[in-house]
Nucleic acid binder design. Sequence first.
DNA 1: TATTGTTATACTCTATAACTATA
DNA 2: TATAGTTATAGAGTATAACAATA
Lengths: 138, 138
Amino acid sequence: MTNGRPDLAAMLARLARQLIAIEQPILAEHDVSMWGYAVLTALRDEPMRTQAALARSIGADKTRIIGILDELQRRTLIEREPDPADRRVRLLRLTPAGRDLHSAVQAEIRSAEETMLGQLDDEERHFFLQALENLHRT
Amino acid sequence: MTNGRPDLAAMLARLARQLIAIEQPILAEHDVSMWGYAVLTALRDEPMRTQAALARSIGADKTRIIGILDELQRRTLIEREPDPADRRVRLLRLTPAGRDLHSAVQAEIRSAEETMLGQLDDEERHFFLQALENLHRT
DNA sequence: TATTGTTATACTCTATAACTATA
DNA sequence: TATAGTTATAGAGTATAACAATA
């Protein structure tokens, strides 16, 4: 007889779905999609030299982020200019407005996460987050 | 400045995707889909009286599991008979073959999970799983 | 009239391949 | 010829609404 717990993937997928549902209203209020927010997050950590690299870093396809970049650029949340040294590639970075929007959204998301994390006691919470970060880095 | 960790949803979603990718070959080898396996798992824990309840319990839509139930029934992995007391509803339960298949697949999945859980030390692993189970029950 | 299961339809997401412009 | 970005197309997955059978 296998251990009584549910499968790992089932638990993780369900929690992820739940959390995404919680965050949806926040993103909608700021008129940004999940992938748009992922792009802002990736660019906040470091500017990128190619769209393909950006796509890879958020686990998406290079063809899929184009519409997202179009929209973010139209709203002047990101800059996207051809590299003078190689005019095929686009240099990507956040504008001040993009940075502000990201900060505002992330703050609300962090607060919303508490509805989930708040159910854990201190010890569980600490090791849960530590384990998640360790696994995520791998 | 917010805490340096990535957003919770980003970490959970990525780990879930990773784990699902790891399990895909196992499911394929046994010729069962992710949702098919989810159905077998749900029915192993307890037989169900309606398809809608089953769908809800695995986070799916009642219209979406029909094809899956058709297939599982065709392979005689589940039984699906009208309730004599209310012929609108279908009583659902695993056949012995369904139970065997589920056990075999789950054993392999548990083993595959170790490639991820094995990266944690004992303390992290213990509280990580405990926290996941607590959150999952909620 | 309400409910269970089913079917049909449309919509969203995603993956693949073809195209352009540079190199 | 190879690469970055773009566009077009098709496929899978999903949600919604309409339908038939039963209560």
